[in-house]
Design a protein around this nucleic acid. Structure first.
Length: 432
DNA sequence: TTTTGAGTTGTTCGA
DNA sequence: GTCGAACAACTCAAA
């Protein structure tokens, strides 16, 4: 059957509870599902990027469950070129997709909308990856929140008033169709190789949310959800995760999901924060930006075992425990006085759960220059943090087994000295 | 418009 | 070892 509409998968790689997919299938009896490996994004990634493999594997899995004649068609190129060809070859009436709030994506979508509208084809976009988006949770005067706590209170108030039902897209899949010239691009044909991505199972354990508050700060314990990659690429719907979170009387985990949406609306309202400090006066900081020191930080050879353990966990697995992310971030920006943008870029390249809004805002938080940021004089002590969160050195031993041996490097900078240097540098920048 | 209270995750110092 | 205050003001949110 000839397709009348297209559903464009992006970061919503699932068939159930998918708002855009549901809307497309409810409104059209012949919907072509597609995914585009955007060449502009891929060309910036290493050929063994685990996240590309992760997406690729997921598409294969989805197609397996869809069966014959309704396969997701995959393309490699620029979305503009792909759509231009698709709407020339087929009598498409509408294209559906879910919202993406990142600056690159909003620009790209604007371009696609223009291409489609010129041919009188509708471009319909739906909210899917968050409970509340854009300006749905604002101050009473309509302006965006810049502080988390009042945002979270307003968020919860809205949530209690508006039950968010799932979208049963999985019940309408018979409306999916293929095109005659079936499309599937292989990873190899795009110049990529299959990566050994150690991205674990993504079912959230029942007791994890109950004990989340207690366990989440101990890096040697599996107390965090590790849902990041699945949320990033939409293997799971946020509505189902929130529903799970609500089963617990402890809302610490739910609050983390609200942080995610807080940062997403910040990115939406303040896209310049991808490259600029939210607080402009922090642009005056005279970063030292020593390349050799940066390299030691990247490799996990600072001589501070908990910092090094975190960086090595990141390098080896594409994941770092949240508690340690704060410490290595503080160490880079404050002990070494290296620009938060360098750290942000390194995390972006390495983290399997990389999410632009969270990465940027959290790096700005740790540097002190962001929304609701840590005060600049709050400097993590890389030794005290061990006593507090890795008392028995379980985490350190796992990633830095040689930490007590002679081969382990000396501390690359003295804590007290670095702390005072940092305070002076920040004070000078802020004219205090 | 003005005022008031509050603000993710810490550290250090001195009693 | 433990506890509270200071760090340093500033900005935000809401009454």
């Amino acid at each position: 059957m000839n397709p009348k509409a297209i559903f464009w998968f992006r970061r919503d790689l699932r068939l159930n509870d998918n708002h855009g997919l549901f809307t497309a299938l409810a409104q059209h009896s012949s919907v072509l599902p597609i995914f585009i490996f955007d060449s502009e994004i891929l060309e910036k990634l290493p050929k063994n990027d685990a996240r590309v493999s992760f997406i690729y594997q997921r598409l294969k899995t989805l197609n397996k469950s869809l069966g014959a004649n309704r396969q997701i068609q995959t393309f490699h190129g620029t979305p503009k070129d792909i759509f231009t060809k698709l709407i020339t070859d087929h009598a498409i009436k509408a294209v559906y997709t879910n919202h993406d709030y990142e600056p690159y994506a909003t620009n790209r979508d604007l371009g696609i909308k223009n291409v489609l509208n010129q041919k009188k084809i509708e471009f319909k976009t739906l909210k899917d990856q968050v409970i509340f988006e854009k300006s749905e949770v604002t101050k009473d005067d309509g302006s965006p929140y810049k502080v988390y706590t009042p945002y979270s209170k307003k968020w919860l108030g809205h949530f209690n008033k508006n039950y968010i039902a799932p979208y049963p897209s999985e019940t309408l899949l018979e409306n999916l169709v293929e095109i005659k010239e079936q499309q599937w691009v292989s990873l190899e044909s795009m110049g990529f190789v299959e990566a050994d991505s150690k991205i674990a199972a993504y079912e959230i354990k029942a007791d994890l949310i109950d004990s989340y508050e207690e366990n989440r700060n101990t890096p040697s314990v599996a107390g965090t959800s590790r849902l990041g990659p699945y949320l990033r690429f939409g293997f799971l719907s946020i509505r189902s995760i929130v529903k799970n979170a609500l089963k617990s009387s402890n809302n610490t985990f739910l609050k983390e999901l609200i942080w995610r949406e807080f940062f997403m609306q910040i990115l939406w309202h303040f896209p310049q924060t991808v490259t600029q400090s939210f607080k402009p006066q922090y642009e005056a900081i005279k970063w030292r930006n020593n390349k050799e020191e940066f390299e030691r930080w990247c490799q996990g050879k600072t001589g501070y075992p908990l910092v090094d353990a975190g960086m090595r966990e990141l390098n080896q697995t594409g994941f770092m425990h949240n508690r340690v992310r704060m410490l290595v971030g503080s160490f880079l920006c404050k002990h070494l006085l290296i620009d938060w943008r360098w750290g942000e870029a390194y995390f972006a390249q390495k983290l399997h759960d990389f999410e632009l809004s969270s990465n940027v805002s959290n790096w700005q938080w740790v540097a002190g220059c962001g929304v609701d940021a840590a005060p600049y004089f709050r400097i993590f002590n890389p030794t005290t943090q061990i006593a507090k969160f890795d008392k028995d050195h379980d985490y350190i031993k796992k990633w830095v087994p040689e930490y007590q041996e002679l081969t382990y490097p000396k501390q690359m900078v003295d804590h007290k000295f670095a702390r005072e240097r940092c305070l002076e540098t920040y004070k000078a920048a802020l004219n205090r």
